[in-house]
Design a binder for these strands. Structure first.
Length: 472
RNA sequence: GGAGAGGUGGCCGAGUGGUUUAAGGCGAUGGUCUUGAAAACCAUUGUACGGUUCUCCGUACCGCAGGUUCGAAUCCUGUCCUCUCCGCCA
């Protein structure tokens, strides 16, 4: 979520930033947000003032009625005068009468029950008006909040301004192409031939875009996950095992909801959802907490399955296991101060690249342009591996700095050193890495003419020292 | 899944409709005293939003959401969570 104060104070600047995102619907919400924010503040001030007056009157009346020293006749007279004052909207006078700070006017006399009854009636009317006012403010705030939840994050000034993903800036390829002196095959041919991917049975169990890994396929994936986690740990991330099913509020916190509600799977009869990425769980790990600056940066890593409905991608990438409903991912995550978040983004992206290099698979970095940033990121890099069988670049990691966008949604704050004034930390997430795609890259880069696959050197210790996967 | 007991500030813990504007204690922070420390004493103490603009003021928050009432931590309803016992299970 964006800072409402920023929109209020620099509306034109915010609009100018949002224009870079190629998201007209969001841009058009700004004026309505400004209008609602103005209304809400005027109304709230007015109602809270009335509320303060009523609270004082209630308290003063209770005190007066319970007073052991004052004669009933005076209590009744004061209540009568206060009732009249409330009726005339003179709340100060009413309060002064009730708490005894002004003297009674001469000639006041009144029936005890009738006077208090009348005063209570006036207070009830006052309370009804206040309740109506709060209802209006709450309705305004609900609409305002809903609009705010639909606003994307603003891009960092360093992000290249272009409309679409075709303009993403691709860096140089790193690492050498492996020598393949035959026509490389795609993984959807290699996998079934080796008996390590079973597409038909995956479809039988769960439908299209599901698959079964068998034997070396399943083992290779498990080895990759262990390898990824070990790398992250060596880089100072502490490992988490989290629930794979979370409350819907968590999806709002990490900004999948409300905009991308149809991309996740829900649990029937419950307001809970399967993780589309571990980012959702980790973002909300410290939800509603206030951290200390001394604890930052907090570095976490978690391996989880990821479930995505991929409705928006119907018909795309239907062959093989590039785009599936369930996959495994190791996610790196950082909570940092605003001052250090961009330096940490570079570090995290480099760490993702290092894993590609260790696997000895050619890769490149993409600098994502404003029009392709997505909803939450202020800046983003993708890492792609080259895969010769299907002859394309596969996105195996995406590293983002969301700045305070998710922290604000998840009510996550920290105390700066020596201060009790809370700030929002910045949150960063990056894959390190995701498995079916890395497996594709391994199979297609390390394939040999006979259809067997050489196991990358760094994985061999995870696989009992084996160096090749063949049909045997 | 069944039965019972609970949920109050950073922590412990009082609080059965209006002197509670959440007592008291612990912790933390600042100060006094001290060569230093401890002890003692004094002061301060959360979050969000709004107003004000660097200092205050106001409103809300006692698991959460509704309700009753002039007024709710307190009464009512629902819900979530925790603990104990039983059942089931890896």
């Amino acid at each position: 979520m964006l800072d409402i104060a920023l929109i209020r104070e620099k509306p034109d600047w915010v609009k100018a930033q949002m224009e870079k995102l190629n998201d007209d619907a969001a841009l058009q919400r700004i004026d309505r947000i400004l209008e609602l924010d103005g209304q809400r503040r005027t109304r709230r001030t007015r109602i809270e003032t009335a509320q303060a007056a009523r609270n004082k009157l209630n308290r003063a009346m209770g005190k007066l009625r319970g007073d052991k020293t004052m004669p009933d006749a005076e209590k009744a007279a004061r209540a009568k005068g206060a009732g009249a004052a409330v009726s005339a909207s003179d709340y100060d006078k009413a309060r002064d009468l009730l708490d005894g700070s002004i003297a009674l006017e001469i000639g006041d006399d009144a029936d005890f029950n009738a006077s208090f009854g009348e005063l209570i009636k006036e207070l009830r009317l006052m309370g009804d008006k206040i309740a109506d006012g709060f209802d209006r403010v709450e309705a305004i705030e609900k609409e305002l909040r809903e609009l705010m939840l639909w606003l994307p994050n603003l891009p960092h000034p360093s992000v290249p301004v272009f409309a679409g993903e075709e303009h993403n800036l691709a860096g140089e390829m790193r690492g050498a192409l492996r020598e393949i002196d035959f026509e490389p095959k795609p993984h959807w041919e290699l996998g079934p031939a080796l008996g390590i991917i079973d597409f038909e049975r995956g479809v039988k169990l769960a439908g299209s875009r599901y698959y079964v890994l068998k034997g070396w396929g399943a083992r290779l994936q498990r080895a990759l996950i262990s390898f990824f986690l070990d790398q992250a740990r060596a880089n100072g991330y502490s490992e988490l095992y989290t629930p794979y099913i979370v409350h819907s509020e968590m999806l709002y916190g990490s900004a999948q909801f409300p905009k991308f509600q149809d991309t996740v799977y829900g649990v029937a009869e419950e307001d809970k959802y399967l993780l589309p990425t571990a980012e959702v769980a980790i973002t909300n790990l410290h939800r509603d907490e206030i951290l200390e600056e001394a604890d930052l940066p907090l570095n976490y890593v978690a391996h989880t399955p990821c479930f995505r409905s991929e409705k928006a991608s119907a018909g795309r990438d239907v062959r093989g296991i590039k785009r599936v409903h369930q996959f495994e991912k190791v996610e790196m995550y950082k909570f940092t101060t605003p001052e250090t978040s961009y330096a940490e983004l570079e570090i995290m992206t480099q760490q993702a690249e290092d894993i590609c290099a260790l696997l000895e698979i050619p890769y490149r970095r993409l600098e994502i342009v404003t029009g392709d940033l997505g909803f939450s990121a202020a800046k983003k890099y993708d890492i792609e591996m080259w895969s010769p069988g299907c002859a394309e670049w596969l996105e195996v990691s995406s590293c983002s700095n969301t700045e305070a966008f998710q922290a604000r949604r998840a009510m996550l704050r920290y105390y700066p050193s020596g201060s009790r004034k809370t700030r929002y930390p910045h949150t960063l997430n990056g894959s390190g890495l995701a498995t079916p795609r890395v497996m594709i890259a391994i199979m297609e880069n390390y394939q040999r003419a006979d259809g067997s696959i050489v196991i990358p050197e760094v994985l061999r210790s995870y696989l009992g020292g084996a160096d090749v996967i063949d049909a045997g």
